[in-house]
Amino acid sequence: MIETTTPPRRFARVLACALACGLVAALVPLRAGTAADARELRPTLRVRPVLCIAEREAKPCETLFRIDWKSARPGDFCLGSDRQAAPLRCWSAASAGEHDDVTIVTRDFEYWLAAPNDSRRLTAVRVELLYLRSEDRRRQRRSRHVWDVL
């Protein structure tokens, strides 16, 4: 019984190993191809607003950012932000996407699109932080000269 059952088991292991290797071999080019495809798709990214206005540095600038993107063809994309390491959201085989992000802005940063597991940014939009008033009160002086109208 042992002699008769061993060859099929060995064959099954070899077959499973071959299948696994084949699968890995097939997947690696597939992932690489997806990243390459995503780069070729050159998606467009839109963020609103691109400016966060705060009264002064001591006051937080909390804003809801509406983000949407489009691509000519479906692909795998991840939306990221300089503010965190992990992607905000990922899409598979999608040609468009939307995401809302509520965040407290403390400095300029970028939202960007990239292929999954690829650090290269396909497109990015910069969000700027503007303080209306400086912590230095002298900068708020209203100059008295006649030409100063602003």
């Binding site: 230095d136 002298r138 002086r141 008295r144």
Partner: peptide, 19 residues
Amino acid sequence: DVDVAWFGERFFFDNGDLG
């Protein structure tokens, strides 16, 4: 309308005003 100002630690210049 031209705006030229410089603000140091203590001294400053603000569009013709010295402070």
